[in-house]
Simulated assay, not measured.
Amino acid sequence: MQRIAVNPGSVEWSGENPGIYLKSDPDKDYSVVAVFFRIVLSPHGRGVGAVILGAPASASAYPDVPNMCLTDNRPMMEYLVANFVSKFPTFAGQKGLDSMSWHDVTDSKQDNRNMPHSFSEELLSDAVRLQMTWKGIKAPMAVEVGPEASATKAHDMYAVFAEATDACITINGTNLPGQVATRQFFGQTMSTAFLALSETWVTPL
């Protein structure tokens, strides 16, 4: 089929969206699911944010359990959670997503000096210091999918993905439990830790 140079659909958002999914037991469900956003274009402007579910099935929030959202642009993150994160298969139906606490980010830092060996994002709020680190980053690959294959089943999605062989999440200096596992990702067996760069979501006509 001939490729179309310009997608006539509506661009919803664009930016970076790396993730880390961890398992304490490789034969059980994820013990931690987390995604980070560094948005350059959205209906609510730019910003950074992260959704961390350290107890995905628990209808509880931080500080009782590490279920939280940190952001410097709450309308943007509310839009992303409602229309995208809640539809991602790893997050869909998780009680922790509806119950998580919200924290205003006062500072954010990105460390990409050691790419491709490691990459990290840090968000600070009054109560939480969050660090997400990806290690052993492999060669990137370009992904272009339509609604039938995208995570929301409603959008075209374009991105550059880079698999990480290891990753960790710390909250106030304490590591969340679990290890990186594997999953099927667009027909390939890949790590559950990944960078997603230049990611753009489009509502097709």
Rank of each mutant, 00 (worst) to 15 (best):
A164V: 00
V202M: 13
Y62K: 09
Y158G: 07
V202D: 13
A82S: 11
D29P: 08
V143I: 13
A34S: 12
A50C: 06
S101D: 01
R74D: 13
V85Q: 01
L123A: 02
N83D: 10
A92T: 12
V143W: 02
E16V: 02
G173M: 12
C168K: 07
A193Q: 05
H117N: 11
G178H: 04
E16M: 04
A154M: 14
L123I: 09
A149T: 08
N83F: 10
Y158N: 10
T90I: 14
M1V: 13
G187D: 10
L70K: 02
M76A: 08
S86G: 10
F194G: 00
C69T: 09
E144A: 06
G146D: 01
D166H: 02
N175T: 05
K138C: 02
A59W: 06
P116Y: 05
A82P: 03
Y79C: 06
M190R: 13
R38I: 02
A151I: 14
Q94T: 12
L97A: 14
M68A: 01
A57Q: 15
E12Y: 07
T71V: 08
S60D: 11
D27Y: 06
D27I: 07
T133F: 10
S42R: 04
A127R: 15
L123K: 01
P204G: 08
V202Q: 10
V65L: 09
D98N: 15
L80D: 00
P147E: 06
M115G: 11
P8T: 03
T203V: 14
H155E: 12
G187Q: 13
K87C: 04
